[in-house]
Design a protein around this nucleic acid. Structure first.
Length: 303
DNA sequence: TTCCAGGGGTAGA
DNA sequence: TCTACCCATGGA
């Protein structure tokens, strides 16, 4: 087994632990958060078919933050493969996103929002939009513990084994998902009706009838991206708004049972608010509503 | 047994 | 656009 190191420069302010852990994605296979070592592990399949193990740690100084990536692999890695890994990690940690406008609002609204301006606000995502769509569908109408179980089972059933540890697997490719019989999703992964949606998603991506890449284009209007997300079977308003967040667009709230419960307790004296009332609470955050609600909830439950 | 969880699809109005 | 009704699964 060989090891290769690389370092990615992060834009300050940057809070590695916040970026790695603020979103539940940190616990969804094939990503693992090591809270003792403050390290994010991930089995990653490269485009050429290699499956390597990544260990990602925060490094640098507050003024020059960085990510250290340790790659565990069998055969030597090409420059292109190393570049592919850096691109994937950079995407996971949103190194290309600028949160300064969000921090301006945090300063304007004062404590406790000012706590976020030290580099918080980054919510972990997957290297590919395909993986994020699958995982988001796995969060709908179920408990978080069941989401964890379904995603882990999907990776175990259809992911390709890591070349340095065959017991660990990468996230399944669209091709692997498209080729698997429906029984895998229902009987083995036990994802219920979601199985049909996820298999159809894989089929459409493989056949080319659905191209997810244009949705990552930051120059497209959010309304257009949302429309395309809603056209994916299994994606409704909650999932579409979650995916907009994962695409770096924070202007819409993902109103789920968790947010409703939080709003009822914190702002409505135990009365269930309507969705319009929930939206009104964060209207002043404009393009940053999602992050405001997310960290408002996190602070309330002291996450 | 019933209810609900980080909802969504479909039919019908 | 809004409302019923159904949808698999697992835990309380």
């Amino acid at each position: 087994m060989a090891t290769t190191h690389c370092t990615l420069t992060a834009p300050p302010p940057f809070d590695f632990v916040s970026a790695a852990t603020s979103h539940g994605w940190r616990d969804l296979a094939p990503t693992v958060w090591d809270g003792e070592q403050h390290m994010l592990q991930r089995v990653e399949r490269l485009a050429g078919g290699r499956v390597v193990l990544l260990e990602i740690r925060g490094s640098g100084t507050p003024a020059t933050p960085a990510l250290d990536v340790t790659i565990h692999h069998a055969a030597p890695l090409s420059d292109a493969e190393q570049q592919e890994i850096q691109t994937a990690v950079g995407h996971m940690f949103r190194l290309d996103e600028d949160f300064s406008a969000f921090y301006v609002l945090c300063e304007e609204y004062g404590a406790p929002w000012t706590q976020l301006t030290v580099g918080k606000g980054r919510l972990l995502r997957s290297p590919t939009l395909f993986e994020d769509v699958v995982k988001t569908i796995c969060t709908t109408n179920t408990t978080w513990s069941n989401t964890l179980r379904m995603v882990a089972a999907l990776v175990a059933a259809l992911g390709e084994p890591c070349e340095v540890d065959s017991s660990r697997r990468a996230f399944p490719t669209p091709a692997a998902i498209a080729a698997a019989p429906l029984e895998i999703f229902t009987r083995e992964v036990r994802m219920g009706y979601r199985g049909e949606y996820i298999r159809l998603l894989g089929e459409r991506v493989v056949s080319g009838t659905l191209d997810l890449e244009p949705l990552r284009d930051a120059s497209r209007p959010a309304r257009e991206v949302k429309r395309d997300l809603l056209a994916i079977k299994g994606v409704g308003p909650y999932a579409a708004h979650t995916l907009l967040m994962l695409l770096g667009r924070y202007g819409e709230l993902a109103i789920d049972s968790e947010l409703r419960t939080f709003m009822r307790r914190k702002y409505f004296d135990g009365r269930p608010p309507t969705d319009a009332e929930i939206r009104a609470c964060y209207e002043r955050w404009g393009a940053w509503k999602y992050l405001a609600a997310w960290f408002d909830l996190a602070a309330f439950y002291a996450l």
